[in-house]
Nucleic acid binder design. Structure first.
Length: 573
RNA sequence: GCUCGCAUAGCUCAGCUGGAUAGAGUGUCGCCCUCCGAAGGCGAAGGUCCCAGGUUCGAAUCCUGGUGCGAGCACCA
């Protein structure tokens, strides 16, 4: 059930009835008619802009439309009052039974809030996709949490979701990794080595070097690179992906698939994707203009194979082949997205770090060209995470190879706290992550505040059960603070759709905070008004009616936290 | 120089498809525990929604032009 959708349908039906009886002209576009929660609760339960939206196309005054519409709406048993206000808003107040009905509906439907908005369309969410050269760090963590929650959100809203990790195992950085592991391998043989610029001296490679020794013995000692590079490269990337999978597991992130860049080579897929573009007249040999502003010292005009990305909104055309004929990094990316399209996805979402912002236009151009505009690509950029400890910037060691890892963060504060906290900011806003703050038990900390509501609900239900109360009763609500909670619960399905439409899972986190706030207010109301307390001493039947509402709150908190990948707690520790 | 993102209360941030008197936390100042978990609640004060134009019944939101901050700008990924 979606109360806002139901009432909107009622408004539309009423408007159509007005058309039928000649009170409104035929052929009006109703898409802009909205039914929303009013900003100010004093205005009522819901408001519609129908009269204002239709005033111009119908050539009528907003108030006249609103008054006529109000008369129709009042005939519905759910509508208690309909008042014209402001420039032509129609403020609706719903009958108390409607809110009781919302609570009843939630208790009868564990999937309350799920939507079919996605209509089963297939969406691929690509996220993390960190280079397989080391463990995941904080920046990756945000991308992992965001992408995972977004994927869950879209699933909840009716999309057919695939979660995928693109392994950049085809480029030069993997050679660097292999050489670094080789040096650790030599060290494992007690040989002393130099660490040249541009290698990865991280401690996490020590055991990889030792593992390599265990596998091949001294077969690669004092041998030319061409002997061992290919094998060590494969061995190392496998080891790194093992680390990364373990990191993802710590966070509770489970991918549906890992897609290897290397697997693109030798299959003809790169060639096929470029040929596809060529057949559309979008590939040509040419020379790029030098970049404006500061000119690189070694810049010189070179003829390259270029993709005419400007035909699809990019600023300049992009090279897909270097001057020497080898592919640029962009070519396998085109091929990878070509493959996504061929696998039949209707929508693509790439979650990238903000430092990849310059890459967005060309990739959108490629997807638009390859799919002839049929497949959409939305690129979500996650901004930096700044670490703090007690309000002070958290000092990271500058020593090469050491940084704050995902594992460090999760070990320090836990996966639930990490996930929720990283979703309390919009993806494109920088995030301050204070190790002390995020585990603090105060309402300043959204994770705690929401979990506290969950714990209180369980506390009440435990006590009720101890008193022998049947926990399955129908709701009995009457106080304003109870209706406030019910109204907030009614917004849940609508909120899910808004969040999904915008690909913005942070809205779920903010909603849960608001719901928790209304719940805590209700809780305290019980201090003054014993009649609204959940536990009605010596009256099991009354308690039964009162605990229905917190049970419904928990259904929604549980669903919301589920989307964020956070487990609701039953008690605070 | 160009592109993208951001700019909202002292501070940290929300703000839906354009909607009414722009919200929350924090901080400041008042209240509220004989009572289900006070780890909480209620209230007060606090605003040039960066600036200037434009679109329209209506703009924090959309458009144009500025300002400031961040990120990125051929042959690396």
């Amino acid at each position: 059930m979606n109360l806002f959708a139901d009432i909107r349908a009622l408004v539309i039906n009423s408007l159509e009835a007005m058309v039928a009886e000649g009170a409104l002209p035929a052929g009006l576009e109703m898409a802009q008619v909205a039914v929303e929660p009013p900003r100010d609760a004093a205005h009522g339960d819901m408001a519609t802009n129908a009269a204002m939206v239709l005033a111009k196309p119908s050539g009528m005054k907003p108030r006249d439309i609103a008054i006529a519409l109000a008369a129709h709406l009042l005939a519905d048993p759910r509508i208690e009052s309909a008042d014209v206000a402001g420039p032509g808003f129609l403020n609706l107040r719903l009958m108390p039974e409607v809110w009781t009905g919302v609570v009843t509906a939630i208790l009868g439907d564990p999937d309350y809030g799920r939507s079919d908005m996605g209509a089963g369309r297939r969406v691929l969410v690509e996220y993390v996709s960190a280079n397989p050269t080391g463990p995941l760090h904080v920046g990756h963590t945000r991308g992992a949490v965001f992408g995972d929650a977004l994927a869950s959100l879209l699933d909840y809203a009716g999309w057919d979701v695939t979660r995928e990790y693109y392994i950049n195992d085809g480029g030069a950085q993997v050679d660097v990794l292999a050489r670094s592991v080789y040096l650790r391998y030599l060290e494992a043989h007690d040989l002393s080595v130099d660490w040249p610029e541009g290698t990865y001296p991280g401690d996490y490679l020590i055991e990889v070097g030792e593992a390599l020794k265990a596998k091949v013995g001294d077969a690669y000692v004092d041998k030319d690179e061409q002997v061992w590079l290919q094998d060590v490269r494969e061995f190392s990337t496998d080891a790194m992906m093992g680390l990364i999978r373990a990191d993802l597991a710590r966070l509770g992130v489970v991918m549906d698939s890992f897609y290897s860049e290397k697997s693109l080579y030798g299959t003809g897929l790169i060639e096929a994707s470029i040929d596809d573009l060529r057949s559309k007249g979008l590939i040509y040999e040419g020379t790029l203009e030098p970049p404006k502003g500061k000119l690189p010292d070694d810049w010189e005009a070179r003829e390259q194979t270029l993709f005419r990305s400007t035909a699809h909104g990019d600023d300049v055309d992009r090279p897909v082949q270097k001057h020497d004929g080898s592919w640029t990094y962009f070519a396998p990316d085109i091929a990878y997205h070509f493959d996504k399209i061929q696998r039949g996805f209707d929508e693509l979402i790439d979650v990238l770090g903000a430092d990849h912002g310059g890459y967005v236009k060309r990739m959108k151009a490629a997807v638009a060209a390859l799919s002839d505009g049929r497949v959409s690509l939305d690129v979500k950029l996650t901004q930096l995470v700044k670490l703090y400890q007690n309000g002070e910037p958290f000092k990271m060691s500058k020593r090469a190879g050491t940084f704050v890892t995902l594992a460090d963060v999760v070990e320090e504060v836990g996966a639930d706290v990490t996930r929720f906290t990283m979703l309390t900011r919009k993806n494109d806003a920088p995030l301050d992550f204070d190790f002390s703050k995020v585990v603090e038990q105060s309402k300043d900390n959204a994770v705690f505040y929401v979990q506290y509501a969950s714990a209180r609900i369980h506390s009440v239900l435990r006590k009720a059960a101890d008193q022998g109360v049947d926990l399955t009763g129908a709701p009995v609500i009457s106080d304003a603070s109870e209706f406030a909670v019910a109204r907030k619960l009614a917004e849940w399905p609508r909120l899910v759709e808004i969040a999904a439409r915008n690909n913005e899972p942070h809205r779920i986190a903010f909603y849960l905070y608001e719901l928790a706030s209304d719940f805590h207010a209700l809780w305290n109301r019980g201090s003054e008004q014993h009649g609204v307390r959940f536990l009605q001493d010596g009256d099991p039947e009354a308690t039964r009616g009162k605990i229905a509402l917190p049970r419904a709150v928990f259904v929604v908190i549980s669903a919301g936290l589920g989307i964020l990948g956070v487990t609701p707690v039953e008690e605070m520790r």
